[in-house]
Design a protein around this nucleic acid. Structure first.
Length: 690
DNA sequence: AATATCCGTATTTTT
DNA sequence: TACGGATATT
């Protein structure tokens, strides 16, 4: 236990205390009870949390009784590594660190039985959930009707929002999906069946992980037991938690000595995932007697960068009082660069990146940030052409690609022979088997039957070949052989992936236009799998913590080299670089066309830009292409000129060094990207004055 | 019933 | 552009 308020005398043990400012010190040494730390961008939030962990351990709290909830697994690792360096403590690995979902996974496997969760459940990602929705829709015969039924992705979106906000289905549909109101009853019956089906087959989706943890924490006796595992709970990025996560904390918080939440409402960028800033605002109500500590001194950015960032967020109507200031040196103003088009943007960026490297800023210390993953497509081509190495974070579609899903489906059948979606997918790989045959095969094997009594569907398939269309007999026996091999050998997930690749090869050759690339991806997957002790772990960890970057896949050799960071703004959360380049600062990109529906959405886009800008330590470049040659993407017409993002009005533009730079005669650049014609010049200029 | 082909449309951010 | 859905063909 942790009774006495912590004496200041003891706090001086670690020398790391000297580096903290008074507010940080107050947060780090905060005594028992709930504490909210409102930490502006760059105010040393990570340092504070790491110190808090170090401090608690020095106070005699066992590492294994600390729970550190972060937004990504990477963030948890970084913080614990930092705390380890500070204390020299080697048992830091025993701290429970990770995302809410990952932690739910661990806790439910340990303690879930008491609320009726079997510990060998499998975890399903959003795409799998959507496939289940589709299966059910077809079962109900809702596919063939005059009106088009909402798509499977829409249904999972409705489902997830309903669950995570805790608002009723009727309300959710009315408010966020008004065009689906006519199908309300059908949607409801699909959701009912969806719930039952997951339970029968012992599968949990992302939302279930949170819901069941919540149920566990809420249960009077078991809740106490779970909360009793910890003395201290620390939560990072509290502004991006949703209603269920807040409820989990309310229950867990009752049973522990200390609870600390850290967040910044100005950086809330996950409302699309039902996160709500209300959690931060209501913290003092949710946890009576809470202490609130504000961190306002920024250590990251130079004053000119801070000034511009502050100006951007100051235009947010519902801003909370916070005044970031800095004692840092540095007078170089951020640059706002107007480019002719995307090609010029890429070109200008490459030159600036290389210039900075000449000045001694490694590529690794520079990042290119953008709103949507595909915004860097053209840039990636240019970087490759110029031999500038880069690594991209966020938006990685690796796990979503069909061929990877094929392998995962095979692995999942081995782990959970009642996994309908996987069977449905795998059976249809075989030539001569479509949806109908797949269904009847699954019925024959008893996939739909509740998990439990033997023989399992897998066992049945292996024991004797079921009836199938003649064209498929060969394929079916190959499938049986592959499954049998992996079931028998039990020699680790990497082997399984290799074996399944062998099985899949002919199918890839038949179905895909680029089978070789896809086979190469599977080699990567096998490599990735070799780091895991068993299949179950591999599958679960992969869904809960998918490879965050292209470099996670490329393997270690790349790590020694220098490379530029490309990242979505969302994935850049919590990170910092010496030089930050923000591309596509145009209306329609930031704010995204997809997000201009409501004022709330637009405000979130503003915060997104704010988050991007506040990642910069020394220098910030903002790029704005005037013209897009590619698809309209919602812009009025195909090649109209765009506007600079509305979040940078003239008053803020004045805080930048403005440049309109284009390349006229650079041999590196195709001539089509230069101004080209007199009318091009006119358009270019008129757009500048606009 | 499976597969080939065509057409239209939506198109973000992530656990 | 790529994907899903609908229609035509095998």
């Amino acid at each position: 236990m942790f009774e006495t308020p912590i004496g200041e005398g003891r706090a001086a043990r670690g020398t790391w205390v000297d580096g903290l400012n008074p507010s940080q010190l107050e947060a780090v040494t905060s005594g028992a009870g709930p504490t909210l730390v409102v930490a502006g961008a760059g105010t040393g939030k990570t340092l504070t949390l790491a110190c808090r962990v170090a401090y608690l351990i020095e106070q005699g709290i066992q590492p294994g009784r600390i729970l550190l909830l972060t937004f990504t697994r990477r963030a948890a690792r970084e913080m614990l590594e930092r705390a380890r360096r500070m204390t020299g403590e080697t048992s830091m690995g025993k701290v429970w660190g990770g995302t809410f979902h990952a932690m739910a996974n661990r806790l439910l496997r340990l303690k879930g039985r008491s609320i009726g969760v079997r510990p060998d459940f499998t975890v399903m990602d959003q795409a799998d959930a959507a496939d289940v929705m589709d299966l059910i829709r077809d079962d109900l015969g809702l596919g063939e009707r005059e009106r088009r039924f909402p798509r499977k992705d829409t249904m999972t979106a409705i489902y997830s929002r309903t669950v995570n906000t805790g608002v009723g289905l009727g309300e959710t549909v009315k408010r966020w999906f008004p065009w689906c109101q006519d199908e309300f009853e059908e949607i409801r019956s699909i959701f009912q069946r969806y719930t039952i089906r997951k339970r029968d087959h012992n599968v949990l989706d992302y939302d279930d992980l949170l819901l069941h943890w919540c149920a566990l924490a809420r249960a009077p006796r078991q809740g106490k037991a779970v909360a009793g595992m910890f003395d201290h709970i620390l939560v990072d990025e509290y502004q991006d938690t949703n209603a269920i996560q807040a409820e989990i904390l309310r229950h867990m918080g009752k049973g522990v000595a200390g609870l600390m939440a850290v967040g910044d409402d100005a950086q809330a960028i996950y409302s699309f995932r039902a996160a709500t800033v209300r959690n931060i605002l209501q913290f003092p109500t949710d946890f009576p007697g809470a202490r609130v500590v504000k961190l306002e001194q920024n250590y990251r950015s130079t004053p000119p960068i801070l000034t511009v960032s502050n100006a951007v967020i100051a235009l947010s109507p519902k801003r909370h009082e916070k005044n970031l200031w800095s004692e840092r040196e540095g007078r170089r103003r951020p640059e706002l660069l107007t480019c002719l088009d995307e090609a010029e943007q890429s070109d200008a960026l490459c030159r600036r990146v290389l210039d900075h490297r000449e000045e001694g800023v490694q590529l690794k210390r520079q990042a290119v940030l953008f709103r949507a993953a595909h915004h860097s497509d053209l840039l990636e081509v240019e970087l490759t052409r110029r031999n500038i190495p880069f690594v991209k974070f966020g938006g990685l579609k690796f796990l979503e690609s069909a061929h990877v899903k094929d392998v995962l489906a095979l692995l999942r059948i081995l782990e959970n022979p009642h996994d309908e979606v996987s069977w449905f997918r795998v059976l249809q790989l075989l030539e001569g088997i479509g949806p109908t045959s797949a269904r009847s095969l699954m019925a024959e094997l008893g996939v739909r039957r509740e998990k439990g009594p033997e023989p399992s569907p897998l066992r049945r398939l292996l024991d004797d070949a079921p009836d199938c269309p003649p064209a498929a007999t060969e394929g079916l026996s190959a499938l049986r052989a592959a499954l049998d091999d992996c079931l028998e050998s039990g020699s680790g997930p990497s082997r399984d992936v290799e074996r399944f690749s062998l099985f899949l090869q002919p199918h890839f050759l038949r179905r895909y236009r680029n089978p070789r690339e896809r086979m190469r991806d599977l080699e990567q997957l096998a490599l990735l799998a070799s780091a895991y002790p068993n299949r179950a772990r591999f599958i679960t960890e992969l869904t809960l913590d998918p490879p965050a970057s292209t470099c996670d896949l490329a393997g270690p050799p790349l790590l020694d080299e220098d490379y530029l960071i490309l990242s979505t703004i969302h994935s850049a959360k919590g990170l910092e670089w010496d030089v930050v380049h923000i591309i596509h600062a145009a209306d329609g990109m930031i704010p995204s066309d997809m997000a201009t529906g409501s004022p709330e959405e637009i405000e979130e886009e503003r915060r997104l830009l704010y988050v991007a800008m506040t990642r910069a330590r020394e220098m910030l470049h903002v790029y704005f292409p005037l013209r897009y040659y590619r698809r309209p993407r919602g812009l009025e017409d195909g090649h109209g000129y765009t506007q600079l993002t509305r979040f940078l009005p003239p008053s803020i533009q004045d805080l930048f060094d403005r440049r309109a730079e284009y390349v006229a005669d650079d041999e590196d650049v195709p001539s089509s990207t230069a101004l080209g014609s007199a009318s091009g010049v006119d358009e270019f200029l008129s757009a500048l004055w606009k």
